[in-house]
Design a protein around this nucleic acid. Structure first.
Length: 226
DNA sequence: GACCAGGCACATC
DNA sequence: GATGTGCATGGT
């Protein structure tokens, strides 16, 4: 079975096994953007606490955060960790939005995928994953999001080697799948969900609870123990 | 108390 | 280009 077929098969199996994931968990595109920064190397549960702090004060809008002093923002997002760093990164992103697009998210998202990625990546604190999360989950444009879990799952199934970088993994998905926003959305959400179950220190560990088999006398499936 | 969590920029070689 | 380090809270 080709790598492309395996990628597609993994998606089918995930969708059959777990159904729609309803990502990104946010009420608005702006909330997606804020969450994308806050979740950098951070447990989502901690991000939720920070988001709740902002919501409780009705601050989850470009205008409100633009007007809020960075130090106050930092205190509110404290539960998400790296709060000084992230308050700067959020400010950078919001300043960019106001400097170039008058604070209008729709104007930003009117850019094509390539231009949108390029512009976002130009903001200090917005790296590739954060950028692609915003493009896919806030702007609803086709770009595949790669994260540590994505690499972990692919490595576990011998679909990449340990040296594969972000662009290589992203390209593997995008060249194997139809360019489809709901598909990219679902697939990445599934990879995060199952990626948590794989060993971190031993990415090739044979006793991980979850794996897809492609060989043998029966159809591929998620192992029974999961 | 150690380890981990939906990264990123920057310094240094 | 590759590698190392700081950033920080909260759950297991």
């Amino acid at each position: 079975m080709s790598t492309r077929d395996r990628i597609n098969r993994i998606y089918e199996l995930l969708e059959e096994a777990f159904g729609p994931q309803h990502w990104w968990p946010a009420e608005t595109s702006f909330e997606v953007m804020v969450g994308a920064v806050l979740t950098q190397n951070t447990n989502w549960g901690n991000v939720e606490k920070a988001i709740a702090n902002l919501k409780a004060r009705d601050l989850l809008s470009p205008r409100a955060l633009h007007d809020l002093p960075r130090e106050e923002l930092a205190e509110l997002i404290r539960p998400a960790g790296y709060f000084n760093l992230k308050s700067k990164r959020l400010k950078n992103l919001i300043d960019f939005l106001f400097d170039r697009f008058e604070g209008d998210l729709d104007a930003l998202f009117a850019l094509g995928v390539g231009e949108l990625r390029e512009q976002l990546l130009g903001v200090n604190g917005i790296g590739r994953e954060t950028c692609d999360s915003i493009v896919l989950y806030a702007a609803h444009k086709p770009t595949f999001v790669v994260d540590t879990y994505t690499a972990r799952v692919l490595l576990r199934h011998d679909l990449i080697d340990a040296s594969a970088d972000y662009e290589e993994i992203k390209e593997l998905f995008e060249s194997s799948l139809p360019e489809d926003v709901p598909l990219f959305n679902e697939f990445h959400a599934h990879l995060v969900r199952v990626g948590k179950l794989y060993c971190r220190k031993k990415p090739r560990c044979e006793t991980c609870p979850l794996r897809v088999t492609f060989e043998g006398g029966r159809p591929p499936r998620w192992e029974d123990e999961f």
